[in-house]
Every structure is written in C-alpha cells, then in structure tokens.
Design a protein around this nucleic acid. Structure first.
Lengths: 136, 136
DNA sequence: CTTGAACCTGTAGTGACTACAGAGATTATA
DNA sequence: TATAATCTCTGTAGTCACTACAGGTTCAAG
C-alpha cells in the first residue's frame, strides 16, 4: 500500500490528477489511514496504469469510463471493447484527414508569400477573403 | 451598419462568440446606438471574417491577435506574417505525425481483438500493461 | 521536540467558447 | 396605441481535462 505521492512518482501521473480522477469517478475511493491519508493497493495502481495508457491512446475520459465500467462489470465481451476502440480509431482518422486538409491550405497560402519587407502580404489578403482560402 | 444578430447571421459566427471576441480584444469595441445596441461597420464585418477564416485554419486566438496587431500597425512586413504562418504550419504537421503514430497503435491493438462474445479481450490486456501498447 | 516534507481540503485558473438569467429596447401585430 | 414577441444588453457559470494554489494537518528524520 502506497500513498499518493509515491503513486504519482511510480506512474508518472501528476499528483493532483490522481485526486481529480477520483473525484470524477475514474479511480475508486482508496483506503485511508486513520488520519485520512490515501492508501493505494496494487489493484489501484494497475487501474491508474490502465487509465494513463488509455489516455496516451487518446481515449477521452468518457470512453475510459465506459471501458472501466465494462471491466468492472466482470461480464463484458470482447465485442463491446472492440466497438469502443474502433469508434475512437475512426475519430482519430477523421482528425488526421481534417489536419491534412488544413496543412495543404496553409502550405498553399504560405507558398504565395515571399516573406520580403514589403507591406503587401498575400496571406493577409487571403485571410481578409480577397482570395479563396479553404479549397474543399 | 448592422446589429449583432445580423452580423452573426451573415458571418455564421455564434452570437455570443462575437461578444467574446470583443471582450478579449480581437474585435474592436463597435459603435453603439443611443440605447447601447452595438452597430457594426463594413470594416468590423471584414475583421470578423478575417478572424473566422484564421480560426478555420487552426490559428489560435493568440496567433490571430498577433496577426491583427501587425495589420493594425499598418507597418507590418510580409516576412513577419510568413513567420507566424510557417510556425503554425509546423505545429499542424507535428500534430499529424503524432496522430498517425496513435492511429497505427490503435489499429494494431484493434487488430489483435476478434470481437467475439468471450470475456477475454486483448485490448483490455494491452491497456492493463500485459503487453506493450505504444511502440515508439 | 522541532523542522520540513508530504498530505489533506476546497477553490480558481487555463482555452475557446457556449449558455443561461434577468433587464431593457425594438418591432410587429391587433 | 397597447401589447406581445423578439432582439439586445449585462454579468456569470458551464464545458473538457486537467493544473495550481492557499491554508491547514500529519508524518518522518534528526
């Protein structure tokens, strides 16, 4: 059983974030010492690891809640988990598509500007709508 | 000269967002009627258009502030604008790289799961750290 | 026994909005 | 002209996922 500071150190998670995860219900309220200090078990540590790895994969708090609720039910199916994961994967792919479109547009606009000392700038013109900026 | 609701309709911008942009200094305080209703000129409309197009290109409020400050100075150079744009472009490209890495990892994890009715799920295992999840 | 670190609580700040509540102004209709 | 409906005004609170602080208690080392 370790305390919050130790858990933060071992997991690499911010100290305050642990308390936050407890507040919103991602982490279960841990045991306490007689004086009120939190004590985390091995299970608690594993659960935080789960959350942090999921977070690194871009899962939202809501998605992690769903995953953990499934796990906690001890009655989840692989299919339910896959559905959540693939949903998330789809949204990541959409974000990539959107950003690539953005990148092309920005690169186009940037290429029109030769960056000199002149005060006429095609980028500013484009933003003011003198030219079409976002090609769909 | 049009009022706030009309500006919102024409620009497609949310009504409240216009007031917000004024509060943080992106939009200049517009003229007012005797009773206090805001009146927007053609210049005001063009400025909001500038902001909205910039926003669509993913510029942050801070970046738009910088761009508009340059424009307002009437003494900006094309080079300054290009620098800001290319800086933003670089951060967009980095975001794409990060998301692609994420996508590969998620796709890997997803592929390990056959989505059946069984309660053993490789995705959950991976999140619990039983297997390495993020390949750098 | 004292000092300093770690822990406790609640609350406020971030970015970029969005959404109210309650009051006053304007416009349309009867 | 009266009134009802809509629009605008202000300030403030909520969103997401944290992060940081203030002011107080407890613990561990010397």
């Amino acid at each position: 059983m370790i305390k919050r500071g130790e858990l933060a150190n071992r997991s690499g998670c911010n100290l305050e974030t642990i308390r936050y995860y407890e507040k919103i219900g991602l982490l279960k309220p841990p045991e306490r010492t007689a004086s009120g200090h939190r004590l985390y078990s091995r299970d608690d540590q594993a659960r935080l690891g789960f959350i942090l790895r999921g977070r690194d994969l871009g899962f939202s708090i809501g998605e992690l809640m769903s995953l953990l609720t499934l796990v906690d039910s001890h009655d989840y199916s692989c299919g339910e988990v896959l559905e959540l994961t693939d949903g998330h994967l789809a949204s990541v792919r959409q974000k990539i598509i959107d950003l690539k479109k953005l990148e092309r547009t920005l690169a186009d606009v940037s290429a029109q500007c030769d960056g000199g000392d002149v005060p006429e700038c095609p980028i500013i013109d484009a933003l003011y709508g003198h030219k079409v900026v976002v090609p769909n």
